[in-house]
Simulated scan of single mutants.
Amino acid sequence: MGVAYSVGEVDHLYTFFVQWSPEINTKDKKKACRPRYIVGEKNNNRYLVLENDKVDAINKLLIKHDTPAANNWQIITVHDSKRRQSVCSSEGSEVGESDDDLLPVLCDHSHLLDDQHLERIAVHMPARTKGYPWQLAYSTVVHGTSLKTLYRNMAGLDNPVMLVIKDMQNKVFGAFSTEPFRVSDSCYGTGETFLYSFSPDFKAYRWSGENSYFVRGHLESLQIGGGAGGFGLWLDADLNHGASFSCPTFHNQPLSTQQDFVVQDLEVWTLQN
């Protein structure tokens, strides 16, 4: 079995694959794209899960170049992973037919998210986050309404977070951030950050590439996406009022039915590893 590694180290293994055998990740000499993989975990051990036709090639590659990764990771197929997936779920639970079916497993009760919400969001989350449980880091129901408390609860974390908002019109929307929310003099985050909305139908707004105004935290506000005078999502210091405008970062539509909205409930979930 593999040894325990942080989620980020999967990217180092991916870089090795591309460096030593780019043909595995390319097709018709087009630009390389990231292979479909997920990280599985059981009994504190982790393993990389790839599509069936990639496993033999990757195993031979690791052995050929005598890389330490060959000793530290177990490469298995998606089919084999079905019998191992048990994070925060009962041993008798069924596993879906693909890695897209591995929903974010919430280890705490959510007042805002159900399985239908999670099914839609999961498709757009980075592959490296799949198969891991999510823990409630902040909730207005539990912790009150304070941006300072939200930042305080994020202190010391180094994992992606998922923001979920329900406004007074009962519309659910939010953002996935690759970094926890914090006060900063500059913007932070990566191109995996995205906005989403269930108003009226689900839609995710991914990075457009026009700028890198992903997330910026102030004591008096939290901003996600920006440029051209508007924020993709903005929240005030009391987490009571918010706003959502179209912005160049995500080319999004306003996430709520109203550009200025009042928050009914808000939750922030963090990846647990």
Results as ranks from 00 to 15, higher is better:
residue 234 W to N: 00
residue 131 G to V: 10
residue 232 G to P: 13
residue 18 V to D: 13
residue 170 N to Y: 15
residue 93 S to P: 01
residue 58 I to R: 10
residue 159 N to C: 11
residue 219 L to R: 03
residue 150 L to M: 14
residue 233 L to V: 11
residue 20 W to E: 07
residue 15 T to K: 13
residue 199 S to L: 05
residue 50 L to M: 15
residue 23 E to A: 14
residue 127 A to W: 12
residue 142 V to R: 08
residue 48 L to S: 04
residue 192 E to R: 01
residue 244 S to V: 01
residue 1 M to I: 00
residue 273 N to T: 08
residue 177 S to P: 02
residue 9 E to C: 14
residue 66 D to S: 02
residue 66 D to C: 00
residue 230 G to D: 08
residue 78 V to E: 06
residue 254 P to E: 07
residue 214 F to M: 09
residue 134 W to A: 08
residue 126 P to C: 11
residue 83 R to P: 04
residue 266 L to A: 04
residue 117 H to L: 06
residue 250 F to I: 06
residue 131 G to M: 07
residue 222 L to F: 06
residue 197 S to V: 01
residue 73 W to S: 02
residue 15 T to P: 02
residue 134 W to N: 08
residue 261 F to W: 06
residue 103 L to Y: 05
residue 39 V to G: 03
residue 15 T to D: 14
residue 218 H to F: 14
residue 133 P to G: 09
residue 164 V to M: 04
residue 170 N to M: 03
residue 180 P to R: 07
residue 10 V to Y: 06
residue 271 L to P: 12
residue 169 Q to P: 04
residue 69 A to F: 13
residue 113 L to G: 01
residue 58 I to L: 06
residue 53 D to F: 08
residue 1 M to L: 01
residue 172 V to E: 15
residue 254 P to W: 12
residue 197 S to N: 01
residue 193 T to M: 08
residue 247 C to A: 13
residue 72 N to V: 09
residue 32 A to P: 09
residue 206 R to G: 04
residue 76 I to S: 01
residue 102 L to Y: 07
residue 51 E to L: 10
residue 192 E to M: 04
residue 160 P to R: 03
residue 132 Y to I: 09
residue 121 I to F: 05
residue 177 S to A: 11
residue 236 D to R: 00
residue 261 F to R: 00
residue 239 L to C: 04
residue 207 W to K: 00
residue 20 W to Y: 10
residue 173 F to G: 03
residue 36 R to C: 09
residue 221 S to T: 00
residue 60 K to M: 14
residue 45 N to Q: 10
residue 132 Y to K: 13
residue 44 N to D: 14
residue 62 L to M: 05
residue 176 F to D: 00
residue 107 C to I: 12
residue 266 L to R: 02
residue 66 D to H: 06
residue 7 V to N: 11
residue 159 N to V: 08
residue 232 G to D: 09
residue 157 L to W: 03
residue 247 C to Q: 09
residue 248 P to I: 07
residue 139 S to N: 02
residue 46 R to A: 12
residue 152 R to V: 13
residue 265 D to W: 15
residue 30 K to H: 08
residue 90 S to D: 01
residue 209 G to M: 12
residue 181 F to R: 05
residue 245 F to W: 12
residue 45 N to T: 03
residue 102 L to H: 05
residue 148 K to Y: 14
residue 31 K to H: 09
residue 161 V to M: 01
residue 89 S to Q: 08
residue 206 R to C: 09
residue 83 R to W: 07
residue 70 A to C: 02
residue 11 D to H: 13
residue 105 V to H: 05
residue 225 G to Y: 15
residue 167 D to A: 07
residue 270 T to I: 13
residue 131 G to I: 10
residue 266 L to W: 04
residue 249 T to P: 07
residue 23 E to L: 04
residue 68 P to D: 09
residue 250 F to V: 04
residue 252 N to R: 06
residue 216 R to E: 14
residue 81 S to W: 14
residue 110 S to F: 15
residue 53 D to K: 09
